[in-house]
Design a protein around this nucleic acid. Structure first.
Lengths: 336, 336
DNA sequence: CTGAAAGCGCTAACAC
DNA sequence: GTGTTAGCGCTTTCAG
């Protein structure tokens, strides 16, 4: 068993209050007493028990982070952002992976509440309204990060997706592309942020005097982009598409993989761009031209908001929008 | 403020002990009392405060996990393994990222101790002996996972690296390769597991009647493999190398990227294989032939060991070795 | 400046 | 089967 405040007090021949005072620097202590306490602490290797401290101060210094899957690189980036700023304020992160199961997330919220976390950030990809109801019950600072869905009326931080897709279309146009295909995950479009992205795309295309061309795939993972590659290729051929704009980097990479495996070279034969700028985007060959969603910053801003709220500071709007950035790399090129 | 056990007791008109008993199912309670307690709990939305509980039971149900960088996909896989089995035993994970700084790791250990974690797993890449001394002081269950270094006399879980590299050489030989270059991170080789990997490689090469050929690079990241690509290419040309065996997948990918950018096709012009089987290995094109380090399992086995130790069960050897697996994909092919 | 004492929310003897 | 009570290790009045 490690030393307690009592042991320190006994050894230093002072009361436990005095020990507490020097530890927390909460009230003046005579130099002599302080010296003795410090010496005793040193000798015993005493470290205050945070659990006991939390119980009385009602501050756990814990933030709960519920993620879909930490194995997703973009999720990892968000978590990095969260942790790094949390730590600046002496907060620790307790990590929960839900693997997209709603009941699991619900269970985690409760679990985290029991652990007395002071705030919760969810970075998940499921569409759910229960979560919000559930969490509001607890009146705890909370931010909901979702790359796909947009159904919860809770604080969040994103980029302006409509502007972003418009920006990409403009860029592709500059490169001389006229027939630009947008590839989207065709599920629950009304609930997802795809609604905004499609609007940005469509408006920009029409603005250039073109005709929107949209094609759906059955998921938003690399496998999905690959699996549905044949369909997409079909659409490409039938419409003389020269540039494909995928709604997620993963789909773009899956598609490029499919094209590669079928002897179609990107960007020589066709341009393919993504959305997100996941870490793979710059490692992959060809390097992916894409829209940057600043995951690290998203996490950092989210936690900062939570921390502010914990401190009772005024917090602004529910949704914070970070600047949009177009990343020009190799997977799109001038049309010949 | 949320409801406490007292509130429940008052509402149910029983003592707090009775409430505690029904919560924990620790002692028989009359059906009638139980019913009333359950009702009160329901009504108040009562959830036991884990902090208070921990204080008295001296069980925090927390495991500290110190990682180098969760942004590394293999680290994320280890953490997944840890979390998933931890959760089966009702443990939570508190995550700390050290970004390879030793002082930070040392500070985290102390911090985690103060949080009363019941065990610590470090998954880091730095070479240090201080960590072990420090942690042993606390007599807390502890596992040290390090993909590169091998200096700590602490429990760990790995694969048999010597066997693994031998296996790869054998495979490459089967494909007809005679001049197989081994690319290693040439720093602290005596301290790293490279020592074993090089031995496995060398023995196997000699065994086949070949001559070992080793070339160093200045790091173990993708950038490093890329940056030193020119040097490696030089060695390749001078020695008629037909297959390159990189000590990490990252280096292999960096190198292939370099070759790609210089119009050398893998595997058509040359075979390149890696070590680790990071998630990128199967996404990348060409898909990387490699040795699988089962990261998820490594994490799972590590936490299982910790949990066993917490429960006072007997634990076997310090180092657990998981089975070696050769993953044949596309980046190596039969010599023409 | 310092100590005694109350109490954070809960569990676990211990008595009844 | 149930209530009373003594802590867990700490912070924080409140006297002095």
């Amino acid at each position: 068993m490690s030393a307690t405040i009592k042991d320190v007090a006994r050894l230093a021949e002072v009361s436990i209050s005095t020990v507490s005072r020097v530890i927390n620097d909460s009230k003046p202590v005579s130099p002599e007493a302080r010296r003795r306490v410090l010496k005793a602490i040193e000798e015993l290797g005493y470290k205050p028990n945070e659990i006991a401290r939390s119980l009385v101060t009602k501050k756990s210094n814990l933030i709960g982070v519920i993620v879909d899957d930490i194995g997703n690189s973009y999720v990892a980036q968000i978590v990095r952002g969260i942790e790094e700023v949390a730590r600046m304020y002496k907060y620790d992160i307790v990590l929960c992976s839900s693997y997209g199961r709603e009941e699991t997330e619900l269970r985690f919220i409760q679990l985290l509440m029991q652990k007395q976390v002071e705030g919760i950030i969810i970075a998940s990809e499921i569409a759910t309204t229960k979560i919000a109801e559930n969490i509001n019950k607890y009146k705890i600072p909370f931010v909901y990060l979702n790359r796909l869905y947009n159904v919860l009326k809770t604080p969040t931080v994103t980029i302006d997706d409509e502007v972003a897709t418009g920006l990409m279309v403009d860029y592709l146009s500059e490169l001389g592309h006229k027939n630009i295909l947008y590839v989207t995950w065709n599920k629950d479009i009304d609930l997802t942020i795809e609604k905004h992205k499609i609007k940005g795309y469509t408006d920009a295309i029409i603005n250039k005097g073109g005709l929107p061309l949209i094609c759906g795939v059955s998921g938003y993972k690399i496998e999905d982009g690959y699996r549905d590659g044949a369909n997409v290729l079909d659409v490409i051929k039938k419409n003389n598409v020269t540039a494909v704009f995928c709604c997620q980097d993963e789909i773009a990479i899956g598609l490029i993989n499919y094209l590669y495996d079928n002897n179609i070279k990107v960007p020589d034969d066709i341009s393919v761009v993504g959305y997100g700028d996941i870490s793979l985007a710059s490692i992959y060959r060809p390097k992916l031209t894409t829209i940057k969603e600043p995951y690290y910053d998203i996490g950092a801003v989210a936690i900062r908001r939570i921390l502010k709220e914990i401190n009772g500071e005024a917090i602004d709007e529910r949704t914070l929008k970070l600047p949009v950035q177009l990343i020009k790399r190799e997977s799109a090129r001038k049309i010949k």
